[in-house]
Design a binder for these strands. Structure first.
Length: 708
RNA sequence: GCCGAUGUAGCUCAACGGUAGAGCACAGCUUUCGUAAAGCUGGGGUUGAGGGUUCAAAUCCCUCCAUCGGCUCCA
């Protein structure tokens, strides 16, 4: 006997071995028809799976349930896989999970799948759907399953099986087991039959590495989307189209905010006047906040000696993603090569290369007479030697981070505990040689400006300072109504890419956790997301097409102070090491602006809007007064534009509306006679006539309050 | 960096082996107009760059560059 308790508490009794399908049949015909999969004691199972437990929590899921939808999409991936295998028999299937809004299937196929193939694949899928073949599960003991998979000659499935848990492995056939129909190693569960995979569409194909490892075989990943009904599918496609209209690259072009010019360089942003004034308003907001919170502005150069970044660790750690160093002489380049060799020296071949290079440098540079450099000396000794040579003749690096400069500002004076915390702030422009395939609009660029600051404080002050940084970040995000963010606490994993002692890391992680807990926000801890010098709190948002981007960040760092041997004099008159906090509420002004553009769809709040008011004359007769209105608005600091062209008023309004200018002032003879303005908004609302001083005062107030 | 797609006037696109076109924008002229596009005229392109095939290339092939979507990376 099986007692199945339904979600509403009702208990149904059935004989042992009853299937979910049979239980559902007893509940109601509508539900039986819609059922895709069942949940038995929290486990998703096929509707045909027999149930043997005496008492179970039982629920039936349809495409209206998140898990039901997921199973439907997973099954749709199988149908797509079958269609692809039918059309391209060389296909080796790899892995096909459901994802947000759909599914993908990774395949290994020498011939590239192109968008032209999508229609053919969809047509074949439609046939499979029409056949309504059942998804049939069968299991084999692990040994039998492994030899079966090995015989089939698909190394990916063998690998999947090796990773799967359990003594038995399950397979799904679309049809009956002896029908010769398509089958796939799969944990399941699946929908009852191939007609139940929803309204689908193949969306795109892309490369993907096996196991997500760039050194492994590259596969083709075919993405599809699937929805309960054709109407849902259509709504999704329409929504995608709408989202693309908000794309900051498109709006940036239309509104003339920024441009990226191949002649200047990929990933290097040119802010045009309209974009620059928007960005400037953001910077002004941040400057006001920083001044009120005791930050001190500094200015530092965009370039620094390589030795600076050797000390911080950035140069060796991020070698591949920095612009190559600048060397003023060939010898400087050679010395750096020598340093590289000394640093990485750990093999006989490297040692030979090192010796040859060393000899070449000595031969060309007789002034370096003192060899003092036995090739079998310990690494530290060799490094020390080479670094003394580098003092007079080093290369330079376009800065990838601002912290080393700020550290040297801190180190330029002796510091007392009474001075701390010291908060050094700079809109610091940094340069990173991002991979060519990564560059995208304003969100991933090679030169960008951080609203950066570094706080140097005592260990006791860390907690309060971090909490203040988190509070500031939340404040600006809230002010901009960017409330749809998630908080990620990035911790270290067990890889060896991190610098610093275990003890430092533990203290830092405790500080980060305390700060984020205190804020009361929801957050997720993610191992492997830390910076190489410390853990961090990141504020992550989605762009209009659903990609995650890190904006603000707060990081605590016990390691760079140690590497730079920073000191302050404590109450006890002894030297102590300060703790550093790296933080940037916007993160990158470029990326933040890109996200803001999409968030507002280009219709910025008044205080951020590139043009705040446009004055449009109805005809030449009102041109003089329009000019006066324009001059007055501009005179009190409102960003006003003037349109006295010979166009008709309708055309002027259209042009201003398309540029998303918040207030359009229509100035005709009537307004001119009464010295008033007629106000229309970019949303087409007519606010009517008002006196000019009243309008300007209201406008100025709205700007001053940064009303969003 | 890798896989695939795409590069035609300032912008959005057409022409798909046979003399590069439209709309918008821009300039000039006419119009002086009341809340999302007035009319006429005109200028503007070695079709991303460089090679190749062909009697003939925007169109076919190759190599770069850039953009887009993924993957990998992200201090």
């Amino acid at each position: 006997m099986v007692k199945a308790r339904l979600p509403d508490g009702k208990v149904l009794e059935h004989p042992n071995g009853v299937t979910a399908e049979q239980i559902v049949a007893g509940i109601g015909p509508g539900l039986a028809k819609a059922a895709l999969v069942a949940r038995v004691n929290g486990q998703l199972v096929d509707l045909k799976a027999p149930i043997h437990d005496a008492e179970v929590e039982f629920a039936v899921l349809t495409s209206k349930d998140a898990d039901g939808l997921m199973v439907m999409r997973h099954s749709c991936a199988h149908v797509m896989a079958e269609a692809i295998c039918d059309l391209f028999p060389d296909t080796k299937l790899v892995y096909g999970p459901p994802v947000e809004n759909g599914f993908y299937y990774d395949i290994d196929l020498p011939r590239p799948i192109t968008p032209d193939d999508f229609e053919k694949i969809e047509a074949r899928m439609a046939e499979i759907v029409a056949e309504a073949r059942p998804f049939t599960r069968y299991e084999l003991p692990r040994g039998d399953a492994m030899s079966k998979l090995a015989d089939e000659g698909n190394p990916y499935k063998v690998d999947n099986a090796e990773r799967a848990e359990g003594d038995a492995l399950s397979f799904y056939v679309t049809g009956s087991r002896d029908s010769g129909c398509f089958e796939d190693l799969c944990r399941g569960p699946h929908v009852p039959d191939t007609s139940r995979v929803g309204a689908f569409k193949i969306m795109q194909v892309a490369g993907a590495y096996w196991h997500g490892d760039a050194t492994k075989q590259q596969l083709q990943r075919v993405y599809g989307t699937s929805w309960p009904t054709p109407k849902d599918l259509k709504a999704h496609l329409t929504q995608l189209e709408e989202a693309r209209k908000r794309d900051h690259r498109k709006i940036g072009q239309e509104l003339g905010l920024f441009t990226i010019d191949p002649l200047v360089g990929s990933g290097l942003v040119l802010w045009k006047p309209r974009g620059a004034v928007m960005r400037h308003s953001l910077e002004t907001l941040m400057r006001e906040e920083l001044m009120a919170r005791g930050y001190q502005p500094v200015y530092t150069p965009h370039i620094g000696r390589l030795e600076l970044y050797r000390t911080s660790g950035h140069f060796p750690y991020y070698k591949e993603s920095q612009f190559p160093p600048l060397f003023e002489s060939e010898r400087a380049r050679l010395l750096n090569d020598l340093w590289e060799l000394a640093r990485t020296h750990n093999s006989p071949t490297a040692s030979e290369a090192e010796r040859r290079l060393f000899e070449a440098i000595l031969a060309d540079n007789p002034e370096l007479k003192d060899p003092g450099y036995p090739v079998d000396a310990p690494v530290e000794e060799r490094l020390k030697r080479v670094r003394t040579w580098l003092v007079g003749e080093d290369g330079y690096l376009l800065r990838p981070m601002n912290c080393p400069h700020h550290i040297r500002v801190f180190a330029s004076d002796s510091r007392s505990y009474r001075d701390l915390p010291i908060r050094l702030a700079e809109f610091g422009t940094v340069y990173r040689f991002e991979q060519s395939g990564e560059i995208s609009g304003l969100t991933r660029v090679r030169g960008f400006t951080q609203d950066d600051a570094h706080i140097f404080c005592t260990p006791d002050q860390v907690h309060r300072e971090m909490a203040d940084c988190v509070e500031l970040t939340c404040k600006v995000l809230t002010l901009l109504k960017l409330t749809d963010f998630r908080v990620r606490v990035g911790l270290r994993d067990d890889s060896d890419k991190y610098v610093g002692s275990r003890e430092n890391w533990e203290r830092a992680e405790a500080a980060v956790r305390a700060a984020v807990r205190e804020s009361g926000m929801n957050y997720s801890e993610e191992p492997g997301e830390a910076a190489f010098y410390g853990p961090k709190i990141d504020f992550v948002v989605k762009d209009c097409i659903g990609r995650d981007w890190q904006l603000g960040t707060v990081q605590v760092d016990y390691n760079l102070p140690e590497r730079f041997k920073l000191r302050y004099i404590g109450e006890d008159n002894a030297e102590h090491q300060p703790v550093m906090i790296h933080r940037a509420p916007f993160g990158s002004l470029e990326r933040f602006s890109g996200i803001l553009i999409e968030h507002f769809g280009g219709a910025f709040p008044l205080w951020l809007s590139p043009a705040q008011v446009v004055v449009c004359s109805v005809s030449e007769k009102s041109e003089d007064y329009a000019r006066q209105v324009f001059e007055q608005a501009r005179g009190i600091g409102i960003r006003a534009e003037l349109d006295v062209s010979s166009e008709r008023i309708g055309a002027k309004i259209r042009a201003a509306t398309l540029m998303k200018i918040p207030y359009i002032l229509v100035i005709g003879e009537q307004e001119a006679a009464q010295k008033r303005v007629n106000v229309r908004t970019r949303d087409g609302k007519q606010l009517g006539e008002t006196g000019l001083p009243e309008f300007l005062a209201a406008c100025a107030l709205e700007i001053a309050e940064r009303r969003a």
